[in-house]
Amino acid sequence: MFELRYLPNVVTLKLDSDKCIGCGMCAEVCPHAVFTLENKRARIADRDACMECGACAKNCIAGAVSVKSGVGCAAAVIRGIVGGGEPTCGCSSTPAN
């Protein structure tokens, strides 16, 4: 109830189970608990929770995870269209930590 969930069936996250070595790094770095480990293999448990930050792919030593990462920011998209090129984030207004 009143959960913050974004649009379904849209993210570019892919997991190649054959390459997975079950190290669990993807599950560890994901801030939205997208992955779970089952029988020493990673599984995408909550795909729609993915925000395409790219942490999982970047930290997968086996190269089993791929995602087209980027900033989910409308202002960045507009800036990308106006200025040309990829959407770039110009600010740092997410909660600092």
Partner: peptide
């Protein structure tokens, strides 16, 4: 409101492109 996606902690680029 749409621009608040940039400050949110859970929106994906693919999702933002779709809604835009």
């Amino acid at each position: 409101g749409m621009n608040f996606t940039g400050s949110s902690t859970y929106t994906s680029l693919s999702g933002v492109l779709r809604e835009m």
